[in-house]
Design a protein around this nucleic acid. Structure first.
Lengths: 210, 210, 210, 210
DNA sequence: TATGAATGAGCCTTCATTCAT
DNA sequence: CATGAATGAAGGCTCATTCAT
């Protein structure tokens, strides 16, 4: 599992017990901040409002993040790192092309629905992420994931499983539909994440599974 | 064609000659502001910066829009109104289901690539649009378009042209892939807007055209 | 009658016919601007609001006054000049002390009730008038009037008509009560301006008239 | 004693020690702001200028007042609340009519000279105070004080102590002369506040005291 | 460690004034 | 003359960040 802290962390304790508590609290702030930002918007949420909503003091936020933007970086890291880690693990599992694609999309959709808020924030602030040095890590992760995904699609194509002649367009379409899921998915809705993922894959592959 | 001005306009001239010039300049500001906001971000672009980029004075912006948010509304109106207008016109043209869907997606993708900036801004500020009274019109347009699209998909399904059993999911997938096009499309790129649209439709319908 | 124009006037016509129309319109603007300022406040009324309320264009205001503050000067001149002129005329009429005081206060109160708006504006902006070179004329008028008033009180005192031993305090009290009249007087109210004036004078002089 | 804070206060501390310091600083700002506004004018003093004059940062002003107008409200509250409180206490002391009036005017004049700046600001912004919901409290206080004063005058009249037949006019005159005192009084001047108050009362009552 | 008062740069907006029509 | 679109300086206010407690 990749663990990156999106830049210098204010003062992470060294003693294990304290460090664990610190890490837990920090992760909690990231999680809940993502929720607040997703609803109110990153730019429209002040550190004061955020602190109030989290039930902590403004100054405390600066114990965990050097600044507001680093909090945003942490949210995006929390979005990309586990996904990329899991996807790489899957990639090494050696599944056959069509199953491999299906497994990856299932994993991906599963991640999208559990990190809906993170993704919504990521999409809001996409323009900022595309520029700026501190975003290099997030950008690299995004590109790595897309490349991995393209590789899986290429293998599926090579195996004759893809319906479309244009693999690049299929990649874009897949990115669009999966990421868009964050906009409408509600837990306990009509479709399970797996059903959603399968529906997407079925659009791309020749012989619908099931 | 729906023409709405996103709320009260700050003293639109009544004399035709002046009004035309006013309308032209206003539309120009909307167009170019969309471009600036798409790149820099709406929240991260100050009215000062925008004015400078447009080559006009800050105060002049307030001749055309009562405030920064109304400029955002105007951008979204400019995005939705022509699309919805054209889509409705097409809807009344009486095409057969599969051609109707293809024609609609072509029109839609064509609109997306000519209004890339508007759409990118719209996606950035989606969270703001979902709340607030002044966004009611934009929200209504978006919903109207989705409903129209769903109707077309339903007709295609009734005609047995749809590959998927889940029309609702197909709708979401289509929304995702088409709107995502704004993120990567570059004029003069490998694929024409028509080819992109056809690629998307081919994923959904049973018998690929061409 | 003193006629001063409170500083350089933008472009007063020279041909008599035009000049008369100009003067009439200018006086009308002064009159009505006083009314608007009295209600909304000078500082809280923009030239745009004022122009709209007067039914003329913003630019037109600048035909009659070089700036907003000169309009304020004109209002104060319109308040002080006729009052001082009439008071001086009365002073030269050679009335006996007690009658002279009564006549002056009647004249004064009469002026206050017909220039209520001007006086309210004057009181609002008193702090501005006490400083600044352009206000020298208005300040001089105010002082001249107070001195004239004090002279009349002194004569009354010399004639044994004053109830109080402290003429300076009586002067202040008189200034306070008469000017305060602008705050509560309504045309057609219970008391006529003459009755009000007499009431004030009766407080000061030994043997109430009538 | 009435203690009102002119609308919502921006996060008043709850811990007693901090709250006391907060209250002290806030009162200090009110006091000194009244002085600055009295001299420069409320509308002509920017928050920047005020902060500079007070030796604090602009943002700090917003710790104590939600906005510029609330600071004005606080100044007026500071003017009216103690006066009304003291006047009511006196009213309940059960003095005989002529002494009661004299005591009230002494108290009032004493308050005027110690709150000269507050009163000057109040008079400047009277037009704003007469309208608007946030001024309801100040307006109510002013009316309550006038009613109390009228009651005292009525008792004096009933006791045959009043010189004038028109009690309402006497009330207006008294309001005018006392409030006008703020315009000219200087500490250490020729007359003490008591002498001034007695001078005013002597104009109204039949048998001058002393 | 946690706090929150204090800061001041920067934001959106207003508005007195100008000038081409 | 009269107009009103255009201007840009300045105003009120917000908010990310700091630091003394």
């Amino acid at each position: 599992m990749i663990v990156r802290y999106g830049g210098r962390v204010a003062t992470r304790p060294t003693r294990p017990a304290l460090r664990d508590r610190y890490d837990r609290r920090r992760a909690d702030v990231v999680e809940r901040a993502a929720h607040v930002f997703a609803r109110r918007g990153y730019g429209r949420t002040s550190m004061q409002q955020l602190a109030e909503e989290l039930g902590i003091a403004v100054g405390s936020l600066y114990h965990y993040f050097p600044g507001k933007e680093q909090l945003l970086v942490a949210i995006c890291d929390e979005l990309m790192d586990p996904l990329l880690g899991d996807a790489r693990a899957l990639d090494g599992a050696g599944l056959a092309p069509p199953e491999q694609l299906r497994a990856l999309v299932r994993l991906w959709v599963g991640h999208v629905v559990t990190h809906r808020d993170h993704l919504l924030v990521f999409q809001q602030e996409r323009h900022a992420i595309e520029r700026g040095a501190q975003w290099r890590g997030v950008r690299a992760d995004r590109k790595a994931f897309e490349r991995l995904l393209e590789g899986v699609l290429a293998e599926a194509e090579a195996a004759g499983a893809l319906r479309t002649a244009d693999r690049r367009l299929a990649l874009s379409a897949l990115l669009g539909m999966v990421n868009h899921t964050a906009q409408w998915y509600r837990p306990g809705g009509r479709l399970t994440p797996e059903a959603i993922a399968d529906g997407y894959v079925d659009l791309l592959v020749r012989a619908p599974a099931r």
